[in-house]
Amino acid sequence: MYRELRQRHGTVVPVVLVGDVPAWLVVGYRELHRLLSDPVLFSRDSDLWSQWPYIADDWPMLPMIGRKQPSILYTVGEAHTRRGAMVSDALDAVDRIELRGIVEYYADRLIDGFCGQGEAELIANFASSLPILVLARLFGFPDAECPALAEALHDMIDGGADAIAGQQHLLGSMRRLVAARRVQPTADVATRMLAGARGFSDEELVQDLMVMSAAGHQPTADWIGNTLRLMLTDDRFAASFFGGRNSVGDAMNQVLWEDAPSQIIAGRWASKDTRLGDRHILAGDLLLLGIQGANDDPQVRVDPHAGGPGLPGSPGSPGSNNAFFSFSHGEHRCPFPAMEIAEVIARTGIEVILDRLPDLDLSVPPEALQRRPSPWLRGMTTLPVRFTPTPTHGGHR
């Protein structure tokens, strides 16, 4: 699809969102790099959007595009720098060895629920549950609240009829957590954010926790699911299912290049008239970040089928690199501690699956697999597998 869009429209594509709302989808690598590197010309301030007079209060994409909210997503300049430091510090204090143990515990507990059956559906029963279990524990939520949190996040991100209800559930949960930690601090991310608030209000911290939940859970769940799909359908990674782990990192890296969980991100708003990719962009226009489209740009990556100049180490050439946009770029790039936490959750979860179910195999033809119909994130609807039944671990490794 991205190849066809690029051929027909170039690197900046005119698109319409639900309700015939116009926007630009940036699918060129260099164009997206320029956009993300200039936070003044291409601002995160959604108040600039020229379409607000035509947006209804129940527009299903509102939770992911949204009127300007008091969250880190919509701050710019020095305020964003201070806020980013607060979030990074709170996440960076997570002990990575302890984190891996937490991931292993929840992964084992989830696998115990189906390991004796010889078959399972790995999206609902594993990939879509593991990240929120771990993040909720890190943030300070009890386990009992995790299923409802996960459902609310899915509803909000998928942009359907329940998107706004999902957003409201998540908002209420975060407000209760911050209020509880204000009264009774503990050793968790919410408490550390309160301690390092640096002049930010509790409501601003609530909004930041919502952003961290949405950015941390579903993309990580899709990273797990997309990597397992790749390893189950690509012969290059088959050896990993016979006791080897060497290619887990390679598979995860390839997914970030070729099957990025965050496909499209909204967005940036032009602060004045400009040109981008031979398009005339008007002040107030919405630009969508075409993460996967830019990753696929033949000007910067080797296409193993068509050849081309490519970027050394990109998919289709020897070695690998991390020059993908899958964690965004620039001032609003995913904080490094958050990237580390996501990678630990995804990699550890996949490794536990390989340890526990070494003969894992798809139980349907690869062409029968379907993607979840989200405009923003690319993940599997289901991933049905079969394996030799194995005993439970009782939640302990």
Rank of each mutant, 00 (worst) to 15 (best):
A161M: 05
T388C: 06
A260F: 07
D155M: 02
W59I: 05
V302Q: 15
I102W: 01
N246E: 15
M212E: 12
M380V: 07
R181I: 06
V178A: 02
D143K: 12
S213A: 14
A90F: 00
G293I: 10
P261H: 09
A260E: 05
G244L: 14
D359H: 06
M380Y: 09
R229M: 10
R198T: 09
R268V: 04
W269E: 00
E203Y: 07
A93W: 07
H80M: 04
E31I: 04
G310D: 13
T11P: 06
R268Q: 10
H80L: 03
A260C: 10
L383N: 00
P70E: 03
N226S: 12
L149A: 06
L122R: 01
V87T: 11
P147D: 07
E203Q: 13
V103I: 01
L311Y: 11
R175F: 01
G379P: 04
M252D: 07
T81H: 13
I350V: 14
H329G: 01
F325K: 08
A180L: 11
V300D: 14
A180V: 05
Q370S: 14
E343L: 12
A56M: 03
Q207T: 00
A23D: 08
W376R: 09
L362P: 03
Q292R: 06
D235Q: 12
V206M: 02
D162Q: 10
D112E: 01
H33G: 07
A323M: 12
P142I: 08
H9F: 15
